[in-house]
Nucleic acid binder design. Sequence first.
DNA 1: GACCATTTGTCCGTATGTATG
DNA 2: TCATACATACGGACAAATGGT
Lengths: 244, 244
Amino acid sequence: MGLKQVQRQTGVALWRQIADRIREAISSGAYDETGMVPPETVLALQFGVNRHTVRSALAALAQEGIVRAVQGRGTLIERKERLNFPITRRTRFTAGIGDQAREMRGLLLDEAKEEASAEIARWLGLKPGEQVIRLETLRQADKRPVSRATSWFPAERFAGIGEAYRAGESITKAFAELGLPDYVRATTEVTAAHASAADMADLELTPGAILLIAKAMNTDLEGVPVQYSISRFAADRVQFTIEN
Amino acid sequence: MGLKQVQRQTGVALWRQIADRIREAISSGAYDETGMVPPETVLALQFGVNRHTVRSALAALAQEGIVRAVQGRGTLIERKERLNFPITRRTRFTAGIGDQAREMRGLLLDEAKEEASAEIARWLGLKPGEQVIRLETLRQADKRPVSRATSWFPAERFAGIGEAYRAGESITKAFAELGLPDYVRATTEVTAAHASAADMADLELTPGAILLIAKAMNTDLEGVPVQYSISRFAADRVQFTIEN
DNA sequence: GACCATTTGTCCGTATGTATG
DNA sequence: TCATACATACGGACAAATGGT
């Protein structure tokens, strides 16, 4: 253990590689016994780098609010949660969290009526060019940003969904408000990618950060598509679970 | 579009950020019309950097075999596939690929008999310390590495599974060989993270590359756990699909 | 209080990598 | 290819804070 875990001259600074590994180790529970990160000198030895380089990594993690350094004592772990999102036929953002967070919120960032692109039309079972409503939303757990989603809805059937979402702060409540009491998740596609500059800002991420991307289609109980969405989750804050 | 897509002084070199974005643009089909990447000067303008910096990014992509620069013509796209893996109750690596690739192979890198850790024992329904067999495998599609997996099996029930896997090049065939004709996927946990140095080497990735990680548990038809595995997929080569 | 080992914080200088023009 | 500016990484030395004896 602890040999050549990081690589040089690859376009990714050593301190960033080390920060990513320590963040992973924290969220995987590697330091649960002490609640602290090992001393800088120990980490430097483990990663085969200078202590200064480790300090840069820890400074970045402190900036993210994950650790807090205390002179004379060590570097304490402040946060280590990773929210679990079950992906099932009844997937709901808020309910899925359950008791993992106290306060769940969905904020409406933007709303627009537009013509469906070929891809959106295909997913919603519309003809390209038909009107759809697009919602840009930000979801938070205990005031911490968790995901940025772009959702499309058939405009005719769900007129006013933006206002309903803003009021209820959830898709489920907005649907209910518009006369759709229940819906189901039909398909989900999962990929991963680097965060765009815009998503980095909204999700309070740093460059090099990873997104888990879920492209999802929901239907009503008759199987008619009601929503297509592309959700970008901060990968170090969540995991998906699929139960078969 | 095209403004401030990359950030400075973040521990990730601009040329690497740009290489990552172009790689994703290619695999998402953004340049399908021409089959080429835009000219270096155009990219430099789009990303707001010097042409030298774009050249560094394209050189890295050429090194990966994704693009090929031709003097006087431009930079041609050599490869852009993204394999789809359905995650269902009957998830199988080889069959899941279907017609997306011609040749599917599973290579056995290492085999070991060891005592189950607390986590492995929990997943396999064993007592910690009971014997398990661990297989390290590399899966390829058309000779291109797709995923690195670490799998654990109850040692008593599946003695000799390493040899069976080496011969059949698939878990399904190895199970059949050992008298288990059928099995089902019980749960799958999906996360994303940066690649370790070892996975980078096996999957022919570059630093900063992203892994889609699937922790999966398979059972026999009676619901008895037969396999727990942690598979790391090159995120820019695959996507997962969940059908509900 | 004094003393100690441990750990983080700060400063110096130097070499190399990254990015621009 | 050259020159320039800044970020990254290293090595060493010492200061400051903490928790113990």
